[in-house]
Design a protein around this nucleic acid. Sequence first.
DNA 1: TTCATTTCCTGTCCTATGTCAAGTGGAATT
DNA 2: AATTCCACTTGACATAGGACAGGAAATGAA
Lengths: 192, 192
Amino acid sequence: MKENLIQFIQQVLPMSTSRAELVVAKFKPVKIEKNGYFLKADSVCNASHFMEKGIARSYTYDLEGNQVTTAFYPANTYASDLLSFFKRTPAKEYIQAITDCETWSITYEDMQASFHAIPEFREFGRLNIVNQYSLLKERMLSNLQETADQRYSDLIHSHPEILQHVPLKYIASYLGIADTSLSRIRKEAVKK
Amino acid sequence: MKENLIQFIQQVLPMSTSRAELVVAKFKPVKIEKNGYFLKADSVCNASHFMEKGIARSYTYDLEGNQVTTAFYPANTYASDLLSFFKRTPAKEYIQAITDCETWSITYEDMQASFHAIPEFREFGRLNIVNQYSLLKERMLSNLQETADQRYSDLIHSHPEILQHVPLKYIASYLGIADTSLSRIRKEAVKK
DNA sequence: TTCATTTCCTGTCCTATGTCAAGTGGAATT
DNA sequence: AATTCCACTTGACATAGGACAGGAAATGAA
């Protein structure tokens, strides 16, 4: 049942399958319907989710009150507000299901307990955060250095499933451009 | 001697000063002269540094071979290539002293040993990474949503010491703009 | 079905920023 | 002192992307 999660963990930190089964023991299956919320802003993120099926996104609001999509979470990625989860502070973001989703989820308490009991778990936890940090850094660099059409092209090549299910306006704000601009970029891209 | 480091740690994770002294025990003083390197690309980051004095920056090269400054590390911040340090992989970045620097530094081996021995240390380590992640996220959002002159203004207000010591071209590439554009932004800013 | 809403595309015009080339002043080198 | 760099500025022009308004197409509700 938890093969994907186990594989994900072994990819972050190689370990025997028997150890990995210990690590995943406290993850429980959760289903969230399309448009439902994993997390709402101003509440403390109490669970951390591995995406088994479906696509979610995180978003927040800018100063003018517009929604800004900050990340997409397709299957086999890890969805959580790290700051809120680990520091027990109110989240600044919403995490919402774009399609029906199934996850393996673990609460803060269970994770802390497992961190204490299972050295591999805490090492996995640390490396998982470091990986997220690294992905974010690459994304920031690509925002600084690449043009919007390069970033769009990168996104749909690395995660084509996003294009299938996600409204373009979400993708536009994720890329940091107006939805009209994305529309034009797509028009140009078709020509090539 | 290590007051600043101890204060930094207690700010990340409140704990008694006696516990904090355990945590900082393995940090050693290091001096790096202006233009010297904390870390070079392609080597594994073997030490993690708390900036006691001075300013450093990290940089990498873009596809056209231009240097891109990715971060500044003024006093009382934590300078390290997290991915290289924790995953033991070759760094993609250089970390260079912009002025003469003094740091408190710890090796990977000492940190791993202390992680095992001191629960507060590993909790501090995790929260420290989470904080870095959160700062990076805020920076990415400001890159997406704010104009270059807003970002410049944010930077010099939050870290005025950077402007004193750092060549403008480094600041420009950090902000993701051409140095000529930064020059014009500064001209406009003077008027206001 | 019909009506309302949302999503997406397109045209026009505008602004922020990039590119390239030239020039100034200061610091370092000889 | 003369020379060479380097950091920084400035001007002219080009371009990516934003703002706003209008309209087509898809979606959802009644």
